[in-house]
Amino acid sequence: MATGGRRGAAAAPLLVAVAALLLGAAGHLYPGEVCPGMDIRNNLTRLHELENCSVIEGHLQILLMFKTRPEDFRDLSFPKLIMITDYLLLFRVYGLESLKDLFPNLTVIRGSRLFFNYALVIFEMVHLKELGLYNLMNITRGSVRIEKNNELCYLATIDWSRILDSVEDNYIVLNKDDNEECGDICPGTAKGKTNCPATVINGQFVERCWTHSHCQKVCPTICKSHGCTAEGLCCHSECLGNCSQPDDPTKCVACRNFYLDGRCVETCPPPYYHFQDWRCVNFSFCQDLHHKCKNSRRQGCHQYVIHNNKCIPECPSGYTMNSSNLLCTPCLGPCPKVCHLLEGEKTIDSVTSAQELRGCTVINGSLIINIRGGNNLAAELEANLGLIEEISGYLKIRRSYALVSLSFFRKLRLIRGETLEIGNYSFYALDNQNLRQLWDWSKHNLTITQGKLFFHYNPKLCLSEIHKMEEVSGTKGRQERNDIALKTNGDQASCENELLKFSYIRTSFDKI
């Protein structure tokens, strides 16, 4: 039985969820670079991206490699990797027998973001014989899940209580170790020597080791999670996991709180800001991140802002960003909400898709409305799209047979046209069989910064309504002859009103 693990408890099935942008060198404390989270699957090609990484700022997932063999891993080693800020997950990587050479110096898994409450997941690794993470000293947050690894031993010899604050939620089941077939031998045991430290858990006094050649490092209890030197002297209180010299914040392997210019500090002093819960960055760093993602459509890219001495992905609820200094300031009234469309555009074809934009005031991208039916549609669209004030790209209304009016965009005031449909149009209306009105132009103002209007096959939309939009939106004169079809717009509506004058002759039985 794995020490510190839980057996036999019912657990939810383990679901495996399925960018080499360097964020800056980590400095003297770390020998390499800070790398983003990685999802490495199918083959070993991307694994080489770990070569210079000291910190993975995010998670590391290595999974679904069915053609790899043990010899493929023999020359692979990433000794610079010290810390993973989120979680480490391995799933069905064939041929991998140990992690001792792959990650010989991995010391800390912070667990800032977890995989279903777990910071370390080893699942269905069919050839893994031992973990071998002999320098792993601290899992700051989260638990361990090690399950269905039929060859995995050296679990009962690990004292997880020396690595985690609590072992109650560890789930370590259905491994070879369960069948008591392992016969784990710690260093020196074969020669009758006791080389590794022994600890007591559940009444068992057991030597602690990761492999037959690597003991588990056990520091004096007084050192807590700070770690200790090879001689057993406690590291500085700002260290986490390990250090090369005692009581020196510049000799830590990793930091308990924050890293700044080669030393570990309790908090980031001005003019620095907390970033990702582990390091200090200056304003320029946060500003660069903001600008890199301002026009990016890459998933996970955030326009970072500053709030409460932190550089964070977005302002919290009730705050909006001051564009001059990136500071989050309290909103006066309802907060603006910028919604970034991942692929640059979004099609609204149902109430469900409209709900995804609920509360958005600025759309960074283009909207395509293609709704053919739905219950209580006008009210639903207004509830979900009615706060949109600005669209950076274009607005396209296409084959939306259920629409009679666009009044559900009740606050839309600006279409920038930074991206144009077919390279020309910022407003595009095609084949809307029941569209009769755009907006009530006596109450609604709309500016279209650039781009043209396109109207074709809107049989109940009168040309007068379209011409009014040209005047109000500032697009009059931009359109070419064929942009607004004269014969297919309003051709099934009563669009022309003329005053009919009647004269009559009164007659009676005795007068003409």
Rank of each mutant, 00 (worst) to 15 (best):
N150G: 13
E147H: 07
G192K: 15
L131K: 00
I82N: 06
L96T: 01
P271Y: 04
S161I: 06
C209R: 09
P79F: 03
I82R: 12
K310F: 04
I146M: 08
F78Y: 12
E238C: 01
L120M: 12
D248I: 03
C186N: 02
N295R: 15
Q204H: 13
I201L: 14
R279N: 04
R162W: 13
S237G: 07
E207Q: 08
H302L: 04
K294P: 04
P330L: 09
I201K: 06
H212A: 14
E49F: 04
C315F: 00
L131R: 01
A156H: 05
G111T: 00
H302Y: 07
L63I: 05
T157A: 11
A190P: 09
S323F: 11
T229L: 11
N257F: 06
L99I: 08
I158G: 04
S98A: 05
K129S: 09
K148T: 03
S166H: 06
C215D: 10
G58H: 00
L63R: 08
D169Q: 11
E314Q: 04
C335G: 05
D159P: 12
V200T: 10
F78V: 04
C335R: 03
I62D: 00
Y30P: 10
P197A: 06
L332R: 07
I146W: 00
S112V: 09
C209Y: 02
E314S: 07
Y273H: 06
L164V: 15
P187N: 15
I185V: 15
R256V: 10
L50V: 06
E124F: 05
H307I: 04
T250H: 04
Y118A: 05
K217M: 14
L60G: 00
H59A: 13
V144C: 04
D165E: 14
N325Y: 04
L155D: 05
D86F: 00
L76F: 11
D184R: 13
L136R: 01
L233C: 03
E49D: 07
L240V: 04
P270H: 04
H48Y: 05
K224A: 08
E97G: 12
E180S: 11
C182G: 04
W278E: 02
T68F: 08
A190I: 07
V121W: 05
G37S: 06
L60Q: 00
V305F: 04
Y134G: 12
I122W: 00
F285A: 05
Y30N: 12
G58R: 00
Y171A: 12
A198W: 10
C331E: 02
N117Q: 06
H290A: 06
N308I: 05
K67H: 01
Y118M: 12
L99N: 02
P330R: 11
T45S: 08
P197E: 06
V265R: 01
C239S: 00
G333R: 05
G132M: 01
N138M: 11
V305N: 03
C255F: 00
E124H: 14
R141D: 15
C219K: 02
V34P: 06
S77F: 14
C234I: 03
D72E: 15
E130R: 07
V167M: 00
D165N: 05
T85N: 02
K310V: 05
V173Y: 03
T189H: 15
L327T: 06
E314R: 13
D288W: 05
N135H: 06
K294A: 14
C280G: 00
T68K: 11
T68P: 07
Q299I: 11
M65Q: 08
C293V: 03
C223T: 01
C311E: 01
N282C: 02
L240R: 05
V206F: 15
E33C: 12
L50K: 00
Q276R: 08
Y134F: 13
L76Q: 11
C234W: 01
N117H: 08
K129D: 03
L133E: 01
H274V: 12
C328E: 01
G111E: 00
L76E: 01
S112D: 15
R208Q: 15
D288F: 07
C243G: 00
D248G: 02
G300Q: 08
E147S: 13
G111Q: 00
C228Y: 03
